[in-house]
Nucleic acid binder design. Structure first.
Length: 793
DNA sequence: AGAACAGAGGTTTTT
DNA sequence: CCTCTGTTCT
């Protein structure tokens, strides 16, 4: 093969690198998949490596599929021998074989985010924790963090809690872990963590896989988290034939534990490593690439590099602000309709899934075929999860979560009371799960209708034992009369749900065709449990694509619209506080820009509905920051308003700077005399301050922004409302929830994002207590309500 | 046990 | 605004 003619110098160098570690720093659009696939082909054809010894890891199933396809094109006769999989599916495959070592049954279930929440809700109930005080997702994210760092959860639980709240969190985690074990279930994070533990505790097992996978390739390495790094490290340790590809500028998964350091310090983990930089971009025109370079150059923490292209021509990139998000959506969709491109060549990208709705409405209105990728996951839909739960309990008899989900769907008159009896009886038998306890319903004390229904339910399960896999879904639908139950919701709804079930059936059918006799129910469930909606998308149909920026990673389109470039939305309001978060948002912007091949349009809408109320938003600072020569900008009315303007608009007064001074003095004075406790006051309790970018009236419902919510306090140390208006302090930053915990006025506290602060007031706001804290971080004063992320010092 | 009602809370991003 | 949760009533 004349690789030299197909690849450029650097690509060639990377593809034909021999033994030893290799780091490929591949900029956006620099042909990294090409390099990876050719490298695989090179190893097999030129180096005589057996395909069996190659492991390629990607981030999504879709990417895995694409790589498989492209490798197959190069090596049609060696299909299927190479392991191309995601981290999760790789670990799953290994665990299915080896998890016996860790004391699990190999028929374990996999719990997705919803299942995790279900379990955590049970935990809260059992520990009698009020979900006002602690949020399920807070505990789950704490746990996820531990797991993603590759720490052993049992070690973590041995540590002393840092405070009261932390103690509660740990108690929840302990019980959660017990429950998962009881249910013979693993969550997503467990798949990785257990696999790592397996390798560490059983050297023989590790060695087996080290021997097997002599050559390892990892794509999107910048988004690996610590466990993933360890897995790679362990597997590659012996032979050091590890090749990773990534771009630190495209690291956008920090929120789920991705650690950019993994790629930045790869060279120190694998000392004799060869580094290849791919900087020539083959995707985008010069103006697009130019904008991308300007944007990403603002980030401090990155490896220096500059993409270039031979493609000098190209349409200039433009930015347009619209009156409202609705008009923005309309203009974009009309633009798509009138463009000379086919629909499938055009994509609209946005920051949050919620933004898809306006666009969808416009597509319907203008009759444009569209496809929303992501959002509500197919596999998380109620009807799909129901059917899958029926299937799950046939495989894993310990899966109480699945059983509870469907034992009364459709309604059978088996309620909470009956389940409790069953559960208790099962426990008395020595750890019987609910499914295992079903035959003992009578002994457990059930009677009447519930008893007979449990009996027939159990017979039904029994009768499914010998049903052919291909007929199973139909049988379930038939025996449970599931469709009848759906009808209750309404005919249209039922129809679409049945369509989804048919799609699942189709999925099962093609699974059976692919796997033949090898296919089993448990293997099917396993495959399905790791699929996401992104994997379902078919980008070859002639429809425009709507998706989040995260979903767009790794894809490219001739024409791209980046919508919703409003401060508070993108960059997101919750990620503007630390430089790291801001940089990550900017990388996301960069990823968006670099998806475009020929044309790129940036847009914003001034007014948009947030929580049912209109908010007027500023143009994103990401747009403001770009000099005119790189981006043609059309603001609607004016440039970004000054602080003075904002103050004017809100208060109708001038003299912002003297006001600011006065305000600062007042705060200082207050902090100085903070031993005089007891002040309380409810201010601004209308609480719709969502985004920091909101600065007031759009003429519609601005009153809530600085409106009349009563300030009632006997002592009135601060004119808090005024401070809010002046933008010195903020209240109601989302992500912090209200509740009650033992804080007192004057306590020093620390917050994960804002650093140290002092409890300023504890207010009684209807039912909930609100803890209000004044933070003084990096010279900026911030007011927060709630305590979810607070630690007492 | 189940339906009907009221109220609170919630929006990043995903394997 | 819309969805999910908890409560009350049958």
């Amino acid at each position: 093969m004349e690789l030299k003619n197909i690849l450029n110098k650097e690509q060639y160098e990377a593809a034909t690198h021999g033994e030893g570690p290799l780091l490929i720093l591949a900029g956006a659009g620099s042909g990294k998949t090409r390099v990876l696939t050719h490298r695989i082909a090179y190893l097999i054809l030129e180096k005589g490596i057996s395909p069996y010894q190659i492991l390629a890891i990607t981030f999504t199933n879709k990417a895995a599929q694409e790589m498989r396809d492209r490798v197959n094109q190069l090596l049609p006769e060696r299909q299927g021998e190479i392991w191309v999989s995601t981290f999760h599916s790789m670990c799953l495959r290994i665990l299915r074989r080896e998890i016996g070592n860790l004391g699990y049954d190999s028929d374990f279930s996999i719990y997705d985010t919803d299942d995790q929440k279900t379990v955590m809700r049970q935990v809260f109930k059992e520990l009698q924790i009020d979900s006002k005080m602690l949020k399920e997702r807070l505990v789950l994210s704490a746990l996820s963090q531990v797991k993603n760092q590759g720490r052993s959860v049992s070690d973590y639980l041995l540590e002393d809690p840092e405070d009261f709240l932390d103690g509660k969190i740990r108690a929840c985690i302990r019980l959660y872990e017990e429950k998962l074990k009881q249910n013979n279930a693993l969550d997503f994070d467990d798949l990785l963590l257990r696999c790592k533990e397996l390798f560490e505790k059983f050297p023989a097992v590790l060695e087996k896989y080290q021997e097997r996978f002599r050559y390892i390739l990892v794509d999107e390495y910048q988004d690996t988290n610590d466990v993933q790094f360890h897995l790679v490290y362990l597997l590659a340790k012996k032979y050091q034939n590890i090749c990773v590809v990534g771009d630190d500028d495209q690291s956008i998964y920090r929120f789920r534990g991705a650690n950019v350091e993994n790629i930045l310090s790869f060279e120190s983990h694998f000392p004799n490593c060869k580094v290849v930089k791919l900087e020539q971009n083959y995707r985008s025109t010069a103006p697009i690439l130019d904008l991308a370079n300007v944007v990403i150059a603002e980030n401090q923490h990155r490896k220096q590099k500059k993409l270039w292209t031979a493609e000098k021509e190209g349409l200039k990139v433009s930015f347009q602000e619209y009156e409202s998000a609705k008009e923005e959506a309309a203009a974009v969709i009309r633009g798509i309709r009138d463009a000379g491109w086919s629909y499938k060549d055009q994509a609209v990208l946005y920051r949050t899934n919620a933004q898809s709705r306006l666009l969808e409405e416009q597509c319907i209105h203008w009759n444009i075929p569209y496809q929303i990728v992501g959002g509500v996951n197919f596999y998380q839909r109620k009807e799909i999860k129901d059917i899958l739960s029926y299937m799950k309990i046939l495989v894993n008899k310990k899966d109480d979560v699945a059983l509870r989900r469907i034992i009364n769907v459709p309604k059978r008159g088996i309620g909470e009371a009956s389940l409790l009896k069953l559960q208790q009886y099962g426990e008395s038998l020595g750890g019987f799960s609910l499914v295992e306890s079903l035959p003992f319903a009578k002994a457990a004390g059930l009677s009447g209708k519930a008893l007979s229904m449990v009996g027939s339910f159990q017979e039904m399960l029994e009768s499914w034992k010998d049903v052919e896999l291909s007929a199973l879904i139909d049988r379930i639908l038939q025996d449970t009369e599931y469709e009848k139950d759906l009808q209750a919701e309404g005919a249209i709804e039922a129809e679409s749900r049945m369509e989804n079930i048919q799609e699942l059936q189709g999925k099962l059918q093609s699974y059976i065709e692919e796997n033949g006799d090898e296919g089993s129910l448990s293997a099917f469930l396993e495959e399905v449990s790791l699929l996401s909606d992104l994997d379902r998308s078919d980008l070859t149909e002639d429809k425009i694509t709507l998706m989040t920026l995260h979903g767009a990673k790794g894809l490219e389109f001739p024409v791209v619209y980046l919508v919703g470039l409003n401060e508070g939305l993108f960059p997101s309001a919750q990620s503007m506080f630390t430089p790291e978060e801001r940089e990550e948002e900017r990388r996301l912007f960069y990823v968006g820009i670099t998806r475009a091949e020929k044309e790129l349009y940036l847009t914003a809408g001034r007014d948009r509905v947030v929580h049912g109320q209109y908010q007027s938003m500023l143009v994103s600072s990401f747009v403001d920051d770009v000099p005119e020569e790189h981006l043609e900008k059309k603001y609607l009315y004016r440039k970004k308003p000054s602080e003075e303007d904002i103050f004017m608009e809100k208060t109708g007064r001038s003299g912002y700077s003297s006001y600011l001074q006065q305000a600062n003095q007042s705060i200082k004075a207050y902090m100085g005399q903070s031993d005089s406790y007891g002040s309380s006051g409810s201010y601004g309790s209308s609480g719709s301050y969502g985004s920091t970018g909101a600065y007031g009236s759009s003429g519609r419902s601005s009153s809530n922004l600085y409106g009349s919510a009563g300030y009632s306090s006997s002592k009135k140390p601060l004119d808090l409302q005024a401070y809010q208006q002046a933008g010195i302090i903020q209240k109601g930053i989302s992500g912090m929830s209200s509740g009650s915990l033992d804080y007192q006025v004057g306590d020093r506290v620390s917050h994960t994002k804002f650093g140290e602060g002092e409890v300023l007031a504890i207010e009684e706001d209807k039912k909930d207590k609100l803890v209000t804290v004044l933070f003084d971080t990096a010279g900026q004063k911030k007011m927060l309500a709630g305590f979810a992320k607070l630690k007492k010092l």
